[in-house]
Nucleic acid binder design. Structure first.
Lengths: 213, 213
DNA sequence: AGCTACGGTTACCGCAGGTAACACTTTAGT
DNA sequence: ACTAAAGTGTTACCTGCGGTAACCGTAGCT
């Protein structure tokens, strides 16, 4: 029957798709962001048009790859976020989880964070339609957890969303910088960021002889 | 004499350079990031090779454009940061200055933030050599101010740098998200972020019936 | 005149994303 | 068994971009 045949073929197609994604993974891990479709196809042992048949365009492949890693990372983050521990410990565990991930596969996460897209010619299109989806998804996810767990009073939902995206951005920028300069250990970075989040900026005293005021 | 001639020519070259940068500005403002060299040259009323004579390559033009806006923005931020006011007020003023800037010229700042670079073939090169320089510069600048003004005890220098980059990242990510969704007014966003920086995350109470613990 | 120096152009290279059209193998229908 | 369809794969091409080489005109100096 058609159905059995179809499922068979769809199974095969799915297997193929996974193989292609793994090949793409390998080449992105090797060549960093900006890996060419040609290179990915070559790594997979095939040629370009097959990639396009499976993923539509480069954005499609990017999306598939991103979804994959994003889902995996979000699962880890959720686990750290939902652990039965004190809030500060959970925050530190979450930060550490993220930093460990980008430390382990910097190329991949650079690829995910810096899509390097843009450039449509028709004027009618919107800008940056799906730029940096990983950051957005993490931000929304964190916002949801914050909103579920914390009592923030009226307007708490919006506050949670701002905080979600803000904290994720903090994590990302600090992580990116840290990955480039390695000025300290991961644990120190985690502590510093958690301290920032815990209000040490407000609590710190002025330096004696501070100029201007 | 050669000197007077040279200065004359250099003056003219500088004027030209400024004209070209302004043209680039216009086209980036219109087409967003990913504006092509051809488009910029056309807007300036000339052709590509002249651009390359002036700026070397696209990275050079990007750098020149970035330096321009970055310097202007950093001046505004420094002014807000150094104002004679309470710390919280200064922080809010700084956040608001940044957000007002990206609100006024979203395309330009998208261009600055998402360089969309990468892709050298020789293996010997470093990755992301000058990626997102605006964020880095803002981070370093803020770090310096923090380190100058606040008494953070031992290890304060590193702490300041982490915070600088972290806060800038928070500002950037929240701003980017806010620019896309406009879920609230700028003032509300500023307040929310300042609240986050002021430790409200740590101070907030658990929600009653919070699952898991 | 003739030479150099500079602003400017056309025409091209290489490479990337993306696609059309063609070839081979399997499977199904009669 | 012969044909027809459908899926897998290929080569060869188009477009547009970053980047460059080679050429053209005009000013000024000697």
């Amino acid at each position: 029957m058609e159905t059995t045949q179809r499922t068979d073929q769809e199974r095969a197609a799915d297997r193929r798709r996974r193989e292609l994604l793994e090949a793409a993974d390998r080449v992105v891990l090797r060549d960093g962001p900006g890996a060419s479709m040609n290179a990915i196809a070559a790594e997979a042992g095939i040629t370009k048009p097959i990639l396009y048949r499976h993923f539509g365009d480069k954005g499609g492949l990017y999306a598939a790859l991103a979804t994959r890693h994003t889902d995996a990372l979000l699962d880890s983050l959720r686990a750290a976020l939902d652990a039965p521990a004190e809030r500060r410990e959970r925050v530190e565990a979450t930060l550490d989880t993220y930093l460990a991930a980008i430390e382990a596969r910097p190329q991949v996460y650079r690829f995910l964070m810096h899509p390097a897209e843009g450039g449509q010619q028709g004027e009618g299109f919107d800008v940056g339609k799906h730029s940096a989806p990983l950051l957005r998804r993490m931000g929304e996810e964190l916002a949801q957890v914050i909103e579920e767990r914390l009592d923030l009073g009226p307007g708490g939902e919006q506050l949670a969303r701002v905080w979600g995206h803000g904290i994720v951005g903090m994590m990302h920028a600090a992580g990116d910088w840290w990955l480039g300069e390695r000025p300290c250990s991961r644990a120190e970075l985690v502590r510093s960021l958690a301290d920032l989040l815990w209000g040490r900026l407000a609590a710190a005293g002025d330096k004696v002889g501070s100029p201007g005021f």
